[in-house]
């Protein structure tokens, strides 16, 4: 197995072009597990930890651009105010050791339906920045996932960064697991409410072949919320929103939970996160 260690971004992109089968490795919290279990044996590893450009974040017009190599720990410590949903999701990732190593870029690279960052990125309407020697493109995260552990990233591309609105609305994230820490999601849900545009963003994790949006639920809620008055969300609206979120999931029965439980739990999480987000907006209870 070859071990490629580019020292900057141009070298990294060139190396990926020369070795399209190379598996990029950042924190290693997914890749090393697969190697240890002998689940995969790539021809080459592309170590991105020396590429400092990947660990920067900053504004890009009205967007916030976050390097793919920023760790969960730094998202929590440095960016909780700017990407609150993603920071909440980051807090639920693994253990402190995993959060010190793991990155959202790696989460996107693995493209697991259970990736904790994905629902928050979906709800925020994030873009994923992919780069190759051919150029750079920004793909809406809603189009990024195409199947279990599969994305639109081509073999010669690397994930450079992801971009979210610099001025987000209110965001919430909640995750169900069968223990109180260090657990893979049974299901998870992210919500964003933007009072300016009167739009609703949603993201569902671990309840389908890919991370999903609950489009119908979001449209329903955007239409029904009392944006003007900021009055209480009618109970029937909250309940219907939960039902629609549950219905948007495509869960299966597996060792972590039952499909019907996942739908039920998503409905509960949707209702609860709506209440908290509405309160964060200044809405009445």
């Amino acid at each position: 197995m070859e071990f490629l260690r580019p020292s900057d971004w141009d070298e990294a992109v060139a190396a990926k072009a020369a070795h399209p089968d190379a598996v990029p490795i950042a924190g290693g919290t997914d890749v090393m597990v697969d190697l240890n279990f002998d689940r995969s044996r790539p021809g080459a590893l592309l170590d991105l930890t020396r590429v400092t450009a990947l660990t920067d974040w900053g504004t890009d017009g009205d967007l916030l651009r976050i390097g793919a190599g920023v760790t969960y720990r730094r998202l929590i410590d440095e960016l909780a105010g700017r990407v609150p949903g993603l920071a909440m999701a980051s807090r639920t990732v693994g253990s402190p050791q995993i959060r010190n190593r793991g990155t959202v870029g790696g989460n996107l690279g693995s493209a697991s339906p259970a990736g904790d960052a994905h629902p928050a990125l979906l709800a925020a309407g994030a873009l994923v920045e992919l780069a190759s020697v051919r150029g750079t493109r920004r793909v809406p995260v809603t189009d990024f996932f195409v199947g279990p552990k599969r994305s639109v990233r081509t073999p010669d591309e690397l994930i450079a960064a992801y971009l979210v609105p610099a001025d987000p609305g209110v965001e919430q994230f909640a995750k169900v697991g069968t223990r109180n820490a260090m657990v893979i999601a049974v299901c998870s849900f992210a919500l964003s409410l933007d009072a300016t545009t009167r739009t609703v963003g949603t993201g569902i994790g671990s309840a389908g072949p890919t991370p999903l949006r609950a489009t119908e639920a979001a449209d329903f809620l955007a239409a029904e919320l009392p944006w003007e008055s900021l009055g209480p969300v009618p109970a029937a609206v909250a309940a219907r929103f939960g039902e629609l979120v549950g219905a948007a999931a495509r869960p299966i029965d597996d060792v972590r939970g039952r499909a019907d439980y996942r739908r039920h739990a998503l409905a509960v999480l949707a209702r609860r996160t709506l209440g908290w987000a509405w309160a964060d907006l200044g809405g009445a209870a």
């Binding site: 909440m88 807090r91 639920t92 919430q172 994230f173 909640a174 995750k175 169900v176 697991g177 223990r179 109180n180 820490a181 657990v183 998870s188 509960v268 999480l269 609860r272 209440g275 908290w276």
Partner: peptide
């Protein structure tokens, strides 16, 4: 939040 069912996964603020 660490004292709640669900821990830091933010599943409840006391509801239920």
């Amino acid at each position: 939040p660490r004292e709640r069912p669900g821990g830091v996964a933010n599943t409840t603020r006391g509801e239920g």
